[in-house]
Nucleic acid binder design. Structure first.
Lengths: 217, 217
DNA sequence: CTAAAAATTTAGACTGGCCTAAATTTTTAT
DNA sequence: ATAAAAATTTAGGCCAGTCTAAATTTTTAG
């Protein structure tokens, strides 16, 4: 049985490990968890004792199988609750992250099972992230970043890498919604920004920074 | 902003105050919160500093207006989540207490508002308890205990005072469901148990202990 | 290759919430 | 009315999770 704090560390380690490659650093964890490096070290010692992470001093950290299992369970709960908040309660996709952050810690297998089936066993959350299976598998998506696509391509917007309200609102304003297709008209040589035509025919600019946080198919 | 623990104390003080009359005792709180009297004293000092309770040493405790407002908010959340769990997820009424105990601490005004309207602004939870209004009022019900009713009366079962799985299961087995009417055939002079006819025509016995925990109209 | 910079860990301390044991106050029973 | 019992509070301590400051290890730059 883990505390909220431990669950949050596990989830954060999972997310960082699958964003960058290799071990996760103490400093990176400190930044995401909004604590200090010294506090992270304390927690890593504790998680290592519980066999949830592989940890060697000064060498960074990696989840054990058990740690990954738990992390995926928490991520599954988070994403299912996000679906609930958007699909059933009518929240918009930029409002649900913080609430799901709390709901994900409610401990009840039965609750997750029933919620999942109530929602119709969704495969993706409102941000396009795949929902881990009840067996603890993270589905592969094979998406690439919009920033890696080329002029002339028509690509389907599948997911976002950034969940902040500001970023999601910006997409709404730019007519860029998940599931819609955009056609890349031009890539600016100077700032790498994209000019794309949205599904409704609008011509919008997508900065390189934004393009790096949009996953497409 | 209160901690989970503080929220639980406020809720417990509210419930005890409206069950017994007058001030709530340290020992009673210790029993319900499953802690020791010394721990309760510590917390009472803290809540008094925050002006959430009226507290004089050795004299018991009473909620302030602000304390009651917060208690009702938490109870409102608890009861709305119970409705959700039963009505939408299909839990039975004896399974939802502990889960709602966790969900009630999720902090989001917006969430409660949307949940309430999603559920159709219910007035009562699955145990027949009235749901406090968003304005912070606890609706009056005017129910009395079945144990206070008399032979020959036909009464409608409205709510339960005890939420334990064991008690609720017992009611299910005895064909005693909320909203149904029972007719009191006989009250045993020796043990004060009731013989009643249920809505489906079954004749069942209700112990005095059970009758004291059933509210009727 | 080595010195400075960056990253990380250790040491020592704090807060919240809990505990036990001892002291104090209130209640109860004769 | 008062002694015993019950209730409550105080004192002192523990654990989780955090912090700052200092020490240590690793990385980087010249």
């Amino acid at each position: 049985m883990q505390s909220f704090t431990e669950e949050n560390y596990l989830k954060t380690i999972y997310n960082l490990a699958n964003r960058q490659q290799g071990e996760v650093s103490t400093n990176a964890l400190a930044e995401v968890t909004a604590t200090k490096a010294a506090s992270v070290t304390d927690m890593l010692r504790k998680l290592a004792e519980k066999q949830l992470i592989h940890y060697k001093k000064y060498q960074g950290v990696r989840l054990t199988e058990e740690g990954e299992r738990l992390a995926l369970q928490i991520i599954r709960r988070h994403r299912l609750w996000e679906v609930f908040l958007v699909e059933k309660l009518g929240f918009s996709w930029d409002q649900v992250h913080d609430i799901a952050e709390e709901l994900e810690h409610v401990r009840s297998e039965e609750l997750v099972t029933r919620l999942d089936s109530y929602l119709g066993n969704p495969q993706f959350d409102p941000h396009g992230d795949p929902i881990p299976t009840s067996a603890g598998q993270m589905p592969e998506t094979g998406y690439r970043k919009l920033s890696e696509a080329e002029v002339g391509e028509g690509v389907c917007l599948m997911a976002v890498l950034e969940h902040s309200t500001g970023f999601l609102r910006h997409l709404d304003y730019s007519d860029l919604s998940l599931g819609s297709t955009v056609i890349i008209q031009e890539i600016n040589a100077f700032d790498k920004s994209f000019r794309v035509q949205t599904e409704t025919g609008r011509m919008v600019f997508v900065s390189h920074e934004v393009a790096k946080n949009l996953l497409v198919n």
